[in-house]
Design a protein around this nucleic acid. Structure first.
Length: 478
RNA sequence: GGCGCAUUCGUCUAACGGUUAGGACGUAGCCCUCUCAAGGCUAAAAUACGGGUUCGAUUCCCGUAUGCGCUACCA
């Protein structure tokens, strides 16, 4: 079997979009599954909108997700260069070839002329198609125009009334008639290639065998197939995956939630969770499972299970999945990955060993790494404040008195190791004379000011006797 | 406007002519429990509409509706 070669060709007009990441993932999974090759190519034919910063961001985010490539702009490869902006000559060469074969022609019509024709067509309720004015130009007329320095573009001569059949591996057979197309431009007046031409030349030259991309490209595909055929290239396997939408069914945008992969990283999403969630958005596994490691995804991935439907991005489910991954992390892994998210305040309060254990004790409470600080205050013995929910208890009990009792009792213990903490709690309960569950509510308020939170026993596990006393002392300060 | 694609619980999806239409997130309830989470169990919740084809349609075909995409010297 021929080696599978896939690619991801982002245009560097911003950060890596979550939808782009999914497209990259599908292509990457396909390449990995069949021991193929995954190529990264930068589509920066539009100089106005492209930037080098974007290239950097996109590369970083892809690397962070673990979607590595065998050929690309930073590492090179046999089909160098991997920036389309540096491949101008190649495109021009192939365009000239088409002109020579009379499959394409020079067009000297100005943008203004075309715009006028377009608006005229619109007014008459007609479909605009380029009128092939320049196709009728004689060689001498052409040469004359070129001599005067008149700018020109190269147009592809679209065959008339021909059916183009796309055997899309996702959508199935899709048929277009060439009559809906007009002679589209392949080379701009500045000599640069238009997207549809550049992709075809690049994919063919780079030996790309399978293309999975957003279905916004489906309508471009007949043009591309025409070009493949005209250039004598083999048409690769094509699959158009539906797009990712926001909760209102509109294209996913910042209005809905974060769209940049980098933003998810910043919020404390694990790359495993993002990969897993994205894989399930538009693809389904053979069984009912939902949590998959990257290797499992590589094994299970198949084009046949790609969905035709557009999918709405569900931030809540992503969070749930992220929580699942966080819970699976061991103490060291969690600490390493969450460290940068922890407030310096807490890093000063606890040494790393203790901080690691404390963070681990909170792993079931967070769905994103950046939520950790919200729960860290539970352990903060340098601060205290009553929450609103504790008000009714505040009226019922004298916390000043309880605090004194707490400290008095605590001082009878050298430390809180092992059984001591339970003995202390029992002793304190007896002296406080509060029965059953209510006692624990009171103890919780006394120690944290809250009526809810992580298990109280953690406090006795990870804070020292002195720290607990200091914490309770806040009640005595008026 | 033209062309194309899509349409199963609120959301992601399974069922490739025969199922009580399955799972997951979310929601609600119960259990566990010092609270909250986590976990376990249970419940409510879907085949857009109208025609065919067929013994039988979520599934195949044709319309309609709705949504989306393309229709650029953007990608």
């Amino acid at each position: 079997m021929e080696k599978i070669i896939t690619r991801f060709p982002p245009s560097p007009t911003g950060y890596l979009h979550i939808g782009g990441a999914r497209t990259a993932l599908f292509n990457w999974l396909l390449a990995k599954k069949y021991n193929g090759k995954f190529i990264l190519r930068i589509e920066d034919t539009d100089k106005e909108r492209s930037s080098f910063e974007s290239v950097q961001m996109i590369l970083n985010d892809l690397k962070w997700l673990g979607l590595n490539w065998e050929e690309g702009p930073d590492i090179g490869g046999p089909h160098y260069p991997y920036f389309q902006s540096e491949r101008k000559d190649i495109y021009y060469k192939y365009a000239e070839q088409l002109v020579k074969e009379k499959k394409a022609y020079y067009c000297f019509c100005t943008e203004e002329e075309l715009e006028a024709a377009r608006t005229a067509a619109k007014q008459n309720n007609e479909v605009f198609k380029y009128n092939r004015k320049c196709l009728k130009l004689s060689d001498s007329e052409k040469n004359e125009l070129i001599k005067t320095g008149k700018k020109f573009v190269i147009r592809f001569k679209v065959p008339e009334n021909k059916e183009i059949i796309i055997n899309d591996v996702v959508k199935g057979e899709v048929i277009f008639n060439t009559d809906v197309l007009d002679d589209f431009i392949i080379i701009k007046s500045d000599g640069g290639a238009i997207y549809n031409f550049a992709v075809v030349v690049d994919d063919a030259l780079m030996g790309v065998t399978h293309i999975l991309r957003g279905d916004d490209h489906l309508s471009n595909t007949p043009k591309q197939i025409l070009l493949y055929e005209a250039l004598g290239f083999k048409v690769p396997v094509l699959g158009h995956v539906s797009m990712i939408l926001g909760e209102d069914g509109q294209k996913l945008s910042k209005r809905h939630c974060a769209t940049a992969v980098g933003e998810y990283k910043k919020q404390g999403f694990l790359k495993e969770a993002i990969i897993n969630y994205l894989a399930l958005l538009g693809w389904s596994p053979p069984d009912n499972r939902e949590i998959f490691s990257v290797n499992e995804l590589i094994n299970l991935f198949s084009i046949e299970k790609l969905s035709k439907r557009a999918a709405i991005f569900d931030f809540t489910k992503l969070k749930w999945m992220n929580g699942q991954y966080i819970k699976k992390l061991n103490e060291d892994e969690l600490f390493e990955r969450i460290f940068d998210f922890i407030d310096d305040k807490y890093k000063r309060l606890f040494d790393n060993e203790r901080l690691k254990k404390i963070v681990y004790s909170l792993r079931e409470y967070i769905e994103k790494l950046d939520e950790i600080n919200k729960y860290m205050s539970f352990y903060d013995w340098t601060n205290f404040s009553f929450s609103d929910e504790s008000n009714t208890y505040k009226e019922k009990y004298d916390f000043k008195k309880l605090a004194n009792l707490f400290i008095e009792t605590m001082n009878e213990f050298n430390n809180l190791k092992e059984k001591n903490k339970f003995e202390f709690v029992k002793k304190f309960q007896n002296r406080a004379e509060i029965k059953g569950k209510e006692f624990y509510v009171i103890l919780r308020i006394l120690l944290t000011g809250e009526v809810k939170g992580p298990e109280l026993v953690f406090l006795f596990d990870y804070l020292t006797k002195d720290e607990l006393i200091k914490k309770v002392t806040f009640h005595l300060k008026g």
